[in-house]
Deep mutational scan, measured.
Amino acid sequence: KAKLLVLLYAFVATDADTICIGYHANNSTDTVDTILEKNVAVTHSVNLLEDSHNGKLCKLKGIAPLQLGKCNITGWLLGNPECDSLLPARSWSYIVETPNSENGACYPGDLIDYEELREQLSSVSSLERFEIFPKESSWPNHTFNGVTVSCSHRGKSSFYRNLLWLTKKGDSYPKLTNSYVNNKGKEVLVLWGVHHPSSSDEQQSLYSNGNAYVSVASSNYNRRFTPEIAARPKVRDQHGRMNYYWTLLEPGDTIIFEATGNLIAPWYAFALSRGFESGIITSNASMHECNTKCQTPQGAINSNLPFQNIHPVTIGECPKYVRSTKLRMVTGLRNIPSIQYRGLFGAIAGFIEGGWTGMIDGWYGYHHQNEQGSGYAADQKSTQNAINGITNKVNSVIEKMNTQFTAVGKEFNNLEKRMENLNKKVDDGFLDIWTYNAELLVLLENERTLDFHDLNVKNLYEKVKSQLKNNAKEIGNGCFEFYHKCDNECMESVRNGTYDYPKYSEESKLNR
């Protein structure tokens, strides 16, 4: 008799109507990190870190770059004969040098303040090359056809396309004075040089004057150069050297050249137009028929994500570079809930034993079982409120962090190594801060989002509990077992918050 009662009780308990509160689960393989956990499985997430590029040089917003090819900045601007293909260059979106560009200054020497000139050019998007001192009329008392084997072109001695090597005419090199007034309405880049012979005999042979000088002056520039005559090792078949100089001439300003020898005179100059998204990159990537809004030396990035880990040097509207390998923000729920887990921000989770793959029309909802059958029903209101809140948060985070910009490298010469090392340390410090901030932001927001979901499920549970009161009992896994019969209409009233407690209280009292 006792065995019969136990079996009867078990049958009745199993047959009781139930309603459970749960949440969506799926077959997603997404994982995120939080402050407290690593690799948390979630139903949905968004990636904030771009880690792919196309490996190509592309047009930037429809404008092609200027590819210097086998030449570098120095060779292009001075007019190395091997860089003749660059003479027609007028406009570009950015400038590309190759790491091993070999054609710079063909006659050995240095372009002074080269690093600063590169910085200036990094904001130039177009130029006009014009004859600042016409070759045939500007130097009537001097020979202007100086050439050298060091600047050979097609097997013949030649010289820079933008400079003139002035030497004596006959047996004399009379003092020369020439000036140019900038009437271009924009900055003009003027380049010139000073020749330093290897011996007094060479000085006399070329310029006749043993104590020659070169003077260059404008409103913002004033220097006097004296040739340094000295024996030097042979470089590119030359014992002599040429140093090259430049200045930016403001609109309306005048530049005056005065010399008694050794002047490498300007022939062509450049009127410059600035462009905020221009820059110089060093890259071996090849040019393709493609378009982008962000270019790196590795390749083009076409992404609206706020961060990238491809390269710190970028041109155009680019994500911020960070050292992170993963920045994924959760938008959905835990896919593998932890039992009795309390989140960092106070939300209680884990009283549900598992997510439901059968509930596909919402994030949170119900599963019921009664004599009429069983089924899932999503709670659309709480789901939609959660979707709206999380979507707004993700968009806000992306908008705040998605300050796209150009980031170019800084140039230092060989004598500025300590400054370069200090600059690298400062840049590394800023990069570490950006990386830390980005990672911390994602970790915190992921923790908040998961706790937010847990709290929403808990609130749904409490909503049902407050309606049923003692007409049902909690069975410990997020479910309630009714003390009365609850048909589909009754189940719907529980879900929509209109459950009639008094209607079922007498039946429940008897069954309790």
Rank of each mutant, 00 (worst) to 15 (best):
residue 259 A to W: 10
residue 257 F to Y: 13
residue 220 N to T: 13
residue 10 A to I: 14
residue 56 K to N: 09
residue 111 L to A: 00
residue 261 G to W: 12
residue 249 L to H: 00
residue 19 I to L: 13
residue 50 E to F: 11
residue 238 Q to E: 02
residue 33 D to G: 11
residue 118 R to G: 02
residue 103 N to T: 06
residue 72 N to I: 00
residue 214 V to G: 01
residue 14 T to H: 03
residue 122 S to V: 09
residue 151 C to Q: 09
residue 231 A to S: 10
residue 232 R to C: 02
residue 12 V to Q: 13
residue 118 R to V: 11
residue 192 W to R: 01
residue 85 S to G: 10
residue 195 H to I: 03
residue 240 G to K: 07
residue 242 M to F: 14
residue 273 S to D: 09
residue 160 Y to T: 10
residue 234 K to M: 01
residue 138 S to W: 14
residue 152 S to H: 00
residue 192 W to Q: 03
residue 146 G to F: 08
residue 165 W to T: 07
residue 135 K to I: 04
residue 260 T to W: 04
residue 215 S to I: 14
residue 72 N to S: 15
residue 75 G to M: 10
residue 221 Y to Q: 02
residue 61 K to W: 05
residue 279 G to D: 06
residue 18 T to R: 12
residue 198 S to C: 07
residue 90 R to T: 10
residue 279 G to V: 06
residue 138 S to T: 15
residue 144 F to Y: 06
residue 146 G to A: 12
residue 184 K to P: 03
residue 65 P to H: 11
residue 144 F to E: 15
residue 134 P to W: 01
residue 76 W to G: 07
residue 118 R to D: 01
residue 132 I to E: 04
residue 154 R to P: 00
residue 12 V to I: 14
residue 37 E to G: 10
residue 266 P to D: 05
residue 187 E to C: 05
residue 72 N to Y: 02
residue 156 K to G: 13
residue 74 T to Y: 07
residue 125 S to I: 15
residue 131 E to Q: 12
residue 75 G to F: 03
residue 253 D to F: 00
residue 230 A to P: 00
residue 51 D to K: 07
residue 100 N to Q: 06
residue 165 W to N: 04
residue 255 I to A: 01
residue 5 L to V: 03
residue 116 E to S: 03
residue 107 Y to H: 06
residue 177 T to D: 10
residue 122 S to E: 13
residue 256 I to K: 14
residue 241 R to N: 03
residue 91 S to N: 06
residue 211 N to G: 11
residue 158 S to Y: 00
residue 30 D to C: 04
residue 130 F to G: 10
residue 192 W to C: 01
residue 10 A to Q: 04
residue 255 I to R: 01
residue 64 A to E: 15
residue 141 N to P: 10
residue 27 N to T: 05
residue 103 N to G: 04
residue 81 P to F: 03
residue 271 A to D: 02
residue 223 R to M: 03
residue 34 T to K: 06
residue 247 T to K: 07
residue 233 P to T: 06
residue 215 S to M: 14
residue 216 V to Y: 07
residue 112 I to P: 00
residue 264 I to C: 03
residue 32 V to R: 05
residue 107 Y to K: 05
residue 133 F to S: 02
residue 162 N to I: 01
residue 178 N to C: 04
residue 279 G to H: 07
residue 257 F to Q: 03
residue 167 T to E: 07
residue 59 K to Y: 14
residue 139 W to L: 07
residue 25 A to T: 07
residue 51 D to A: 14
residue 79 G to R: 01
residue 39 N to L: 03
residue 177 T to L: 14
residue 28 S to Q: 10
residue 155 G to N: 12
residue 219 S to C: 05
residue 260 T to S: 15
residue 58 C to A: 04
residue 269 A to K: 01
residue 187 E to A: 09
residue 258 E to I: 11
residue 189 L to A: 12
residue 231 A to K: 10
residue 16 A to S: 13
residue 36 L to W: 06
residue 189 L to N: 06
residue 122 S to N: 12
residue 100 N to P: 03
residue 27 N to C: 02
residue 267 W to G: 11
residue 6 V to S: 01
residue 229 I to G: 00
residue 227 P to W: 03
residue 180 Y to P: 11
residue 70 K to E: 04
residue 149 V to E: 06
residue 108 P to T: 04
residue 250 E to A: 14
residue 153 H to K: 10
residue 16 A to C: 08
residue 97 E to N: 03
residue 161 R to F: 03
residue 174 P to H: 11
residue 121 L to F: 08
residue 277 E to K: 09
residue 226 T to N: 07
residue 123 S to H: 09
residue 19 I to F: 04
residue 190 V to I: 15
residue 171 D to K: 01
residue 117 L to W: 07
residue 141 N to R: 06
residue 16 A to Y: 02
residue 68 L to Y: 03
residue 240 G to I: 04
residue 85 S to R: 10
residue 42 V to I: 14
residue 217 A to R: 03
residue 246 W to F: 09
residue 255 I to P: 00
residue 172 S to C: 00
residue 52 S to W: 05
residue 81 P to T: 08
residue 156 K to Q: 07
residue 195 H to M: 03
residue 254 T to E: 15
residue 250 E to Q: 13
residue 223 R to E: 12
residue 162 N to K: 05
residue 143 T to N: 01
residue 260 T to Y: 06
residue 170 G to E: 08
residue 20 C to P: 10
residue 259 A to V: 05
residue 217 A to M: 09
residue 34 T to Q: 11
residue 203 Q to S: 04
residue 271 A to I: 13
residue 252 G to S: 12
residue 164 L to C: 05
residue 12 V to R: 11
residue 75 G to Y: 04
residue 26 N to Q: 03
residue 172 S to R: 06
residue 97 E to I: 15
residue 163 L to E: 03
residue 247 T to L: 11
residue 247 T to I: 15
residue 249 L to V: 15
residue 125 S to T: 14
residue 52 S to V: 13
residue 30 D to Q: 15
residue 94 Y to A: 03
residue 97 E to R: 03
residue 161 R to T: 10
residue 230 A to L: 14
residue 213 Y to C: 12
residue 2 A to W: 13
residue 87 L to Q: 11
residue 58 C to W: 09
residue 195 H to N: 09
residue 241 R to A: 03
residue 193 G to I: 00
residue 138 S to M: 11
residue 224 R to P: 00
residue 143 T to M: 06
residue 133 F to C: 07
residue 150 S to G: 07
residue 7 L to G: 09
residue 234 K to I: 14
residue 207 Y to T: 02
residue 219 S to M: 15
residue 231 A to I: 14
residue 243 N to D: 06
residue 178 N to M: 11
residue 149 V to L: 12
residue 97 E to P: 00
residue 210 G to C: 01
residue 166 L to E: 01
residue 54 N to Q: 10
residue 181 V to N: 12
residue 176 L to I: 15
residue 199 S to F: 08
residue 268 Y to F: 14
residue 32 V to A: 05
residue 125 S to Q: 11
residue 34 T to C: 02
residue 92 W to K: 09
residue 70 K to M: 09
residue 23 Y to M: 11
residue 86 L to N: 02
residue 71 C to K: 09
residue 33 D to K: 03
residue 17 D to S: 03
residue 51 D to M: 08
residue 236 R to P: 00
residue 111 L to Y: 00
residue 242 M to W: 02
residue 87 L to M: 15
residue 124 V to H: 02
residue 6 V to E: 08
residue 37 E to H: 10
residue 49 L to E: 05
residue 83 C to S: 07
residue 238 Q to L: 09
residue 44 H to T: 02
residue 27 N to G: 08
residue 86 L to D: 12
residue 281 I to Y: 08
residue 203 Q to Y: 02
residue 21 I to D: 14
residue 170 G to F: 12
residue 56 K to R: 14
residue 205 S to A: 12
residue 17 D to M: 08
residue 230 A to M: 08
residue 164 L to D: 04
residue 89 A to D: 12
residue 280 I to E: 00
residue 122 S to T: 14
residue 222 N to S: 03
residue 113 D to W: 10
residue 257 F to C: 01
residue 251 P to C: 00
residue 106 C to D: 02
residue 210 G to K: 11
residue 7 L to S: 14
residue 94 Y to W: 05
residue 228 E to W: 15
residue 216 V to G: 05
residue 281 I to W: 01
residue 153 H to R: 13
residue 100 N to Y: 07
residue 266 P to G: 00
residue 231 A to M: 14
residue 100 N to F: 15
residue 8 L to K: 03
residue 226 T to I: 15
residue 198 S to N: 05
residue 172 S to L: 08
residue 104 G to E: 09
residue 44 H to Q: 12
residue 229 I to R: 06
residue 50 E to T: 12
residue 91 S to M: 15
residue 224 R to N: 03
residue 174 P to E: 13
residue 84 D to V: 02
residue 56 K to T: 01
residue 239 H to Y: 06
residue 258 E to S: 15
residue 145 N to W: 06
residue 19 I to M: 12
residue 271 A to H: 05
residue 209 N to G: 07
residue 45 S to Q: 05
residue 96 V to R: 00
residue 170 G to C: 02
residue 46 V to T: 09
residue 84 D to R: 01
residue 114 Y to R: 05
residue 45 S to M: 04
residue 127 L to F: 14
residue 75 G to N: 06
residue 252 G to V: 00
residue 100 N to D: 15
residue 21 I to K: 06
residue 266 P to S: 03
residue 243 N to S: 10
residue 207 Y to H: 12
residue 214 V to K: 04
residue 267 W to M: 15
residue 173 Y to L: 03
residue 201 D to W: 01
residue 203 Q to C: 01
residue 92 W to V: 02
residue 54 N to E: 09
residue 188 V to D: 03
residue 84 D to S: 06
residue 171 D to P: 13
residue 81 P to E: 11
residue 48 L to W: 08
residue 62 G to F: 06
residue 7 L to Y: 09
residue 66 L to Q: 06
residue 35 I to H: 00
residue 49 L to H: 04
residue 59 K to T: 10
residue 240 G to T: 08
